[in-house]
Simulated scan of single mutants.
Amino acid sequence: MKKKTTVNVAPGFFYSYAATETQIHDNRNVAVFFREKDLRPGTRMNLHFTRTSSNAAFLPRSVANSIPFSSKRLPDILSLFSVLSDSPEAEALEKTLRECEEPASAGETRYCATSLESMVDFSSASLGTRDVLAVSTEVSKKGTPKQAYTITPSGVQRLVGSKAVACHAQPFAYAVFYCHVTRATKAYLVSLAGQDGAKVDAVVVCHTDTSGWNPKHLAFQLLQVKPGTVPVCHFLPQDHIVWAPRR
């Protein structure tokens, strides 16, 4: 019998953060992260594919570069976009700015892209080539929001290269992506079939070196492993992007 694994598809992507007691309690029976050995045809997982951004549009780089992007300039940003200072929107904007200003973890290079051009430039420079491929999770036939999926017989395809750039959509007044590249990262395209007929072509990122992560990160709390001991994998939500060399 194939082992059934439960996975939440919206994990935290900031590896310097420690898990809160609430996160641990809420996810005690939900494996937000999973082991690479479970990434094989026939594995059954409970998944919930969601969009996490507000579908905000990218600004042209010239426009984005003219707008302040700093927590120190938050009042100016709120005024520019007519956002009330005591609103949930203001809180979300401030959180994104502060997370973009956090120092990188050991072995990680990070960048918050405020335009499509800057995202492409960062990804190409990080991968050492302009010939790059951008992939994201796609739900071709929608089913129920949360259900059991099975990896199809030929459903695991590894992308080229020993590292990949992952870009995660952040809540902001316009499109902002937190992009980062870490050492010893593998990226996969995984074909999934849902119980109700839903089809998903999902992106999976596996980190084979987690030695620089916070020892109290949620991944270690849920998997009951220590930093640097086993590869840690997670699916990406639909509006996040992985860049890898085309060949």
Rank of each mutant, 00 (worst) to 15 (best):
M1E: 12
K2M: 07
K3R: 04
V7S: 00
A10V: 06
G12A: 08
G12Q: 13
F13L: 04
F13A: 03
F14M: 01
F14H: 06
F14N: 09
F14T: 04
Y15I: 12
S16D: 12
S16L: 09
A18R: 11
T20W: 01
E21F: 04
E21D: 15
I24E: 12
D26F: 11
V30Q: 08
A31K: 02
R35K: 13
E36R: 15
E36V: 10
E36D: 10
D38H: 14
T43C: 06
N46M: 11
T52G: 05
S53K: 12
P60Y: 13
R61V: 14
R61G: 09
P68M: 05
F69W: 11
S70R: 15
R73E: 15
P75S: 09
P75F: 05
D76R: 04
L80W: 02
S82N: 14
V83E: 06
P88Q: 01
P88K: 00
E89P: 00
A90D: 08
A90E: 03
E94A: 08
R98E: 10
E99G: 00
C100H: 00
C100Q: 05
A106C: 03
G107Y: 12
T109D: 06
A113I: 08
A113N: 01
T114I: 12
T114V: 10
E117F: 10
M119F: 13
V120S: 03
S123P: 13
S123W: 09
S126G: 12
S126R: 15
G128R: 13
T129V: 03
R130W: 02
V132Q: 12
A134L: 15
T137W: 03
T137L: 00
E138V: 13
V139H: 07
V139M: 08
T150L: 06
R158V: 01
S162A: 08
H168C: 02
Q170G: 01
Q170E: 14
A175W: 09
V176Q: 04
H180R: 04
T185V: 13
L189G: 01
V190K: 07
L192P: 02
Q195I: 10
K199T: 11
V200Q: 02
V200A: 05
D201A: 15
D201T: 12
V204N: 10
H207F: 15
D209T: 07
T210R: 02
S211D: 03
N214D: 14
P215G: 06
P215Y: 03
H217P: 11
H217G: 07
A219F: 09
F220R: 02
L222D: 10
V225H: 07
C233H: 06
C233K: 01
C233F: 02
H234P: 05
P237R: 07
P237L: 00
Q238V: 11
Q238G: 09
D239C: 03
D239L: 07
H240K: 05
V242T: 12
V242D: 02
P245M: 06
R246S: 10
R246E: 08
